[in-house]
C-alpha cells in the first residue's frame, strides 16, 4: 500500500460521513427545490424556478430570522461574557468545577421541558403576578418577542459561555499583571488585554449560537405563541403541515445559502481581528 493509498484510507470514514450526512441530504434539498408540489402535497419532479420566485411569500420569516439571529447572539454574548469572566478570572478554583457544572446542567434537560418552565415563569401566574403584587398591573410577557428572546438566550447561554470561559481561562494571568504594572487601570487592562485576547472564544461562541439560531423553530413556537415566525417555523409548516416539499426545499436552500455567506463574511472579519494563529478557537 502506498502512502497515498494509506492516506485515502485514513480519511475515508470522515469522507463517507461527510458525504452521507451532509452532501447527500443537501443535494436532495437542492434538487427538490426546482420541483413542484404534488396535488395532495409532496414532491413532483420538474425543473422550474417557481419555488424561488415564491420566496417573497416567506419574506417576514427571513426578515425575523435575520434580525433575531444577530440580536439573540448579541444578547447571549452580553450575558455570557460577564458570566464566563466571573467563572474564569474571579472564581476560586475550588468552586470553578461546581459552577461550570451548574452552567451545563440545564443542557442535560430537554429544551422542551425548559421552555415549558419558562411558559410558567413568564405566564400570568409567574413574573406578571409578582409585578402585579408590587402594583405594576397588566404586564404581558409570555408569547411575545421578549419571551422568545429570553428563551433563546437562556437556551443557548452554555454554548456561548464555554468557549469564552476557555479563552479567558487560558489567558496568561501575568499579562494582566504586566498591564497593571505598566500603569493600566483595571478597566483599561480589561479593554486592552483581556477583551482582545478572548476574541477567539467570543468568535466561536457567536458562531455556534448564530448558526443554531438561524435554524431555530422550537423556542419561537413554544414561547412566541405561534405569533413569532422564523424560517425554522416556516420550514416545519411547509414540510409537516402543507407538505410543500419543493417550496420547503427552496426556503431551506436559501437559508443555508444565507447562513454560509454570513458565516464566511464573519470568519473574514474575525480573521482580520485574529492575531495569533495558535489562539484561534477551540471548536
Amino acid at each position: 500500500m502506498t502512502r497515498r493509498e494509506r492516506n485515502w484510507l485514513l480519511v475515508a470514514p470522515a469522507g463517507a460521513w461527510f458525504l452521507v450526512m451532509l452532501v447527500l441530504p443537501l443535494s436532495f434539498v437542492f434538487v427538490f427545490s426546482f420541483g413542484e408540489r404534488g396535488p395532495a402535497g409532496g414532491y413532483v419532479p420538474a425543473f422550474t424556478l417557481e419555488q424561488y420566485a415564491n420566496l417573497p411569500a416567506r419574506w417576514t420569516a427571513f426578515k425575523n430570522t435575520m434580525v433575531l439571529a444577530p440580536l439573540g447572539t448579541l444578547a447571549a454574548l452580553l450575558i455570557a461574557y460577564p458570566l464566563a469572566y466571573q467563572l474564569a478570572v474571579r472564581t476560586d478554583p475550588r468552586w470553578k468545577t461546581l459552577l461550570l457544572v451548574l452552567v451545563i446542567v440545564p443542557f442535560w434537560t430537554s429544551i422542551l421541558i425548559r421552555s415549558y418552565a419558562w411558559i410558567f415563569i413568564l405566564g400570568g401566574q409567574g413574573i406578571p403576578a409578582l409585578l402585579a403584587a408590587l402594583g405594576i398591573e397588566d404586564v404581558r410577557l409570555i408569547y411575545t418577542p421578549f419571551a422568545v428572546t429570553v428563551g433563546i438566550v437562556y437556551g443557548y447561554l452554555p454554548l456561548m459561555v464555554f468557549p469564552i470561559y476557555v479563552a479567558l481561562d487560558r489567558l496568561d494571568k501575568r499579562l494582566l499583571e504586566a498591564s497593571s504594572d505598566l500603569g493600566a487601570r483595571p478597566f483599561a487592562t480589561f479593554w486592552q488585554v483581556t477583551l482582545p485576547l478572548s476574541v477567539p472564544g467570543v468568535a466561536t461562541g457567536c458562531m455556534l449560537v448564530f448558526i443554531l439560531l438561524m435554524g431555530e423553530f422550537l423556542i419561537p413556537a413554544l414561547l412566541g405563541g405561534g405569533k413569532v415566525f422564523f424560517v425554522g417555523n416556516a420550514l416545519v409548516d411547509l414540510f409537516l403541515q402543507s407538505r410543500n416539499w419543493a417550496f420547503g426545499s427552496a426556503v431551506a436552500f436559501t437559508l443555508i445559502l444565507i447562513m454560509l455567506v454570513t458565516v464566511a463574511i464573519y470568519m473574514r472579519l474575525i480573521a482580520r481581528l485574529q492575531v495569533r494563529r495558535d489562539d484561534v478557537a477551540i471548536m
Binding site: R37, P39, A40, G41, A57, R58, T60, A61, N64, G226, K227, F229, N233, A234, D237, L238, Q241, S242, N244
Partner: peptide, 17 residues
C-alpha cells in the same frame, strides 16, 4: 382544504404577519 395550497399559504401569512 387539506390539499389546497392557498389555505396553507394563508395560514403561513397569518402566522408571519
Amino acid at each position: 382544504t387539506l390539499t389546497d395550497p392557498n389555505r396553507a399559504e394563508l395560514l403561513a401569512r397569518f402566522k408571519s404577519a
